[in-house]
Design a protein around this nucleic acid. Sequence first.
DNA 1: CTTGACTCTCCACCTAGGGGAGACTGCATG
DNA 2: CATGCAGTCTCCCCTAGGTGGAGAGTCAAG
Lengths: 142, 142
Amino acid sequence: MESQVVLARSLQIGVVASRSGLTVKTIRFYCDEGLIQPSSRSEGGYRLFDEAVVVELGLVRTLRAMELPLADVRQILEARRSGACTCRDLKARIRRKAGEISEKITAMQNLEAELFALLNSWETCGGRTPAPPTPVLVTAER
Amino acid sequence: MESQVVLARSLQIGVVASRSGLTVKTIRFYCDEGLIQPSSRSEGGYRLFDEAVVVELGLVRTLRAMELPLADVRQILEARRSGACTCRDLKARIRRKAGEISEKITAMQNLEAELFALLNSWETCGGRTPAPPTPVLVTAER
DNA sequence: CTTGACTCTCCACCTAGGGGAGACTGCATG
DNA sequence: CATGCAGTCTCCCCTAGGTGGAGAGTCAAG
């Protein structure tokens, strides 16, 4: 049982990839960008990560999914690691981002509606319509 | 004043830009990509558009706003122009896109929730911040 | 030793444009 | 006529957030 000297068991990039749901390429990219870093390298230069980064990458995915730029994600990770509470600032940023997201949601809902209108206008050519006076699409102008 | 012939009034790119709400750069880009094209060029090589493109660009904006890739937008414009009813196909694509959008909307709503959870978890450090005197804001670089 | 899976670095490419250089156009004025 | 100046032209490089491939090296098993 104990014979294994596998102290901090380090994960190769491929394992991290499959556990985090990101691609190997992306993880390398994130390393290059300084979001995460391998805890060490093998003799042969393989990146070795410890389990914590899998968790961090989960957070990264969440933040990226809300389209937070990598620069912001990096800062958040740094703050999280250092335990340093840059909170006021950080929370403000995230809150702002949340605002943007709900804006985006409503924008998308509008778009969705507009889209169905578009579809309906197209419905007219149900049978075969070569080129009647094309019902000029709504096309918002903003 | 009058010396100008009323001829199919063709618009210079800047006018098209301000009418469509896109930038000159973007319109040139769309020309290069074959989404739209100038009806002609002036002696000196200026692109001259007719009014119809302003309408088309409105449609482009709508479609782009739902993140339809330019390639799809191009096809839609072509179909619209030719009156050719690629509809079945086209509508299917748009419908699919609409589906993606509503998926995205719910994903975003989930994200929004997750985000607030994140914020709340951060709330815990509400009172005390390590390193109170010197505002050692980490995140100093970049 | 060899094989095969895995990883490394480096470089190019992608989308949807944006920035800016340097040259030219078009039009109004002096 | 010249001159000025806004508008436009093409060309090339840059961005973010990766993706893809080439060519070489690594690691463990057989």
